Simulated assay, not measured.
Amino acid sequence: MKNERWAHEVGGLLFDLDGTLVCSLQLIERVLGGWARKVGQDPAALIAASHGRRTQDIVCRYCPADRDPLRERAELDAQFAESLEGVEAIAGAAAFIESLGALPWGIVTSAERALTERRLRAVGLPIPRVLVAAEDVAQGKPDPAGYRLGAELLGIPPAQLLVFEDAPAGIAAAQAAGMRVLVVGEQDPSGSGLACLRDYAQVEVALMPGESRRAMLALRRTAKQA
């Protein structure tokens, strides 16, 4: 751990959803763990490999040849949609978003749009104007298509965007799109030495004088240098 101050000027922010703005790990582990056992996969291994990926991509990778992948996906989607068990906002997320003022921001998630909006409403977080969901791209994370679309919809060059992510697939997608990444969590799961934050109370936001759509972001505490 380096005793260095992480600070960068940005033109906008993009967030992943699960594990980044909303904590839904309990629900995800229950649903995916049950499905893994059903299809003869190791639950822990499947969950670890699936973190940050779309349901259809998980099914495509792990569904046995003797099962209907469309039916399996529909069953998983239904289980995710029917429960908000254990779903809560990441600490400090609501106050952090409120502090952004006019700074452009959006969400790029591997979840379906309807499920994303339901979870955001359930935890009291706003639904942004720019929301790129699973059905909006042909290829999910780690493909950069979602983050590239997010940048296009915000109207901001990728190099001026900061992405908040927690999963290796999402980190790889954002980096491939040419964006800087800040990891939400105790450590960088990609092993790239990215800066990390435990919760949003660590992040300072200072809007640039005369530039309501640009800001300087800094971590209040020691973090690995990005």
Rank of each mutant, 00 (worst) to 15 (best):
R220Y: 04
E4N: 09
K2T: 14
F164R: 00
E112M: 11
L84M: 13
L125S: 05
A81K: 05
C196F: 00
I47A: 14
L182C: 06
L25N: 10
G92V: 11
K224V: 10
A74N: 07
R5Y: 01
V108I: 06
I58R: 08
L125N: 05
Q56T: 08
L70E: 15
A195K: 01
L182Q: 01
S83E: 15
G155H: 10
G140R: 04
L70W: 10
F80P: 02
K2D: 13
F164V: 04
Q41I: 03
G19R: 04
R213N: 07
V22Q: 15
I171W: 00
E4G: 08
Q225L: 09
V205K: 08
L17Q: 11
L154R: 01
C23V: 07
I156G: 04
K2L: 14
I107E: 05
V184G: 09
E117K: 01
E186C: 02
C196A: 08
D199A: 02
Q41K: 14
S212T: 12
E117P: 00
D66G: 12
E165G: 03
P126G: 05
R71T: 15
A81F: 14
A169V: 07
V59Q: 04
P189T: 06
M208N: 08
E72C: 11
C23G: 02
A223N: 08
F80A: 02
A74R: 15
G86F: 09
G19H: 06
S192F: 04
G150S: 11
P43C: 08
A172R: 07
E152I: 00
